[in-house]
């Protein structure tokens, strides 16, 4: 029986230009969905059906895309919950965090809670689905992985370590059908009072010296800053040079 998989996509934002784009993690959710379900995959977006970015998702080889139409200030979760409840779904794939809006990353959790499903976060790969159970690899920091088994149905959020989204083909995206479902939205009441501003760059934390006396403060202020130029070893023996490198590796704790 083919799997019934839904990938949820949102409008991304390029970190350099700020322009709308296919979100990196959501693109991976579609990619994973295509890997597991092929053409049976359904892709769902909540928002504006005329959003051009949807064509970029569709260009990955989708013949159609479902949009639950509602305004930006509406909460996406109740609509999605109602939509997902109607279908007999095995896996819902999302990104970890959207690139626009609140970026709270709560959608998969809220949906999972509402539907009573388990949620697996930061998935690097869904290796296989057998006998109603999926073998999932979770992404841990610095390329490490953890294997987890989970019974269907479940919600998975895709980490950046998951296989990258395939190229979006212009022609395919252009021809894809966008099926709009009108939805009764609920205004996100909590969000109404929020104020949004462009992100201020955060100052790096300075090394503060807890000085109780003038002398200590003086010492701290006049201390020679460390590590301006690199060390160059030329005339030492090979053994000494290798040891110097090795010591640095130990100091940096990359060798354990």
């Amino acid at each position: 029986m083919p799997l019934n998989i839904v990938s949820l996509v949102s409008v991304g934002r390029h970190p350099q230009s700020g322009r709308s784009r296919r979100a990196e993690q959501d693109g991976r959710a579609v990619e994973m969905g295509l890997k597991l379900a092929g053409q049976q995959l359904s892709v769902v977006h909540v928002g504006n059906p005329d959003e051009p970015v949807l064509r970029q998702y569709a260009g990955m080889g989708l013949s159609s895309l479902t949009v639950l139409k509602q305004a930006d200030r509406f909460d996406a979760v109740p609509v999605l919950q109602r939509y997902l409840e109607q279908k007999n779904i095995d896996i819902v794939l999302t990104g970890v965090r959207s690139e626009s809006g609140e970026s709270s990353g709560m959608v998969p959790y809220l949906l999972a809670h509402a539907l009573g499903w388990p949620v697996v976060a930061r998935v690097a790969d869904i290796v296989c689905v057998e006998k109603g159970e999926a073998q999932v690899l979770l992404a841990l920091p610095r390329g490490q992985r953890r294997a987890v088994r989970v019974a269907l149905p479940f919600i998975a959020s895709l980490d950046l370590a998951a296989p990258p989204a395939r190229q979006s083909a212009f022609g395919v995206g252009l021809r894809a059908k966008i099926e709009t479902i009108e939805s009764i939205g609920e205004v996100d009441q909590i969000r109404v009072d929020w104020q949004e501003a462009e992100a201020k760059p955060r100052a790096k934390r300075l090394k503060t010296v807890k000085a109780k006396t003038a002398a200590e403060r003086f010492k701290a202020a006049t201390a020679k800053p460390q590590g301006d130029a690199g060390k160059v070893l030329i005339n030492e023996t090979t053994q000494q040079k290798a040891q110097a490198i090795f010591d640095l590796l130990l100091e940096e704790k990359v060798i354990r």
């Binding site: 809006g101 970026s103 501003a197 462009e198 992100a199």
Partner: peptide
């Protein structure tokens, strides 16, 4: 989420992929 300036009344949190500061 991604809060970085917090006091009892107000929290400033990053949003939109780190490009927004949301005060709430």
């Amino acid at each position: 989420t991604q809060a970085w300036q917090v006091d009892l009344e107000k929290t400033v949190a990053r949003g939109a992929g780190g490009s927004l500061d949301i005060s709430r």
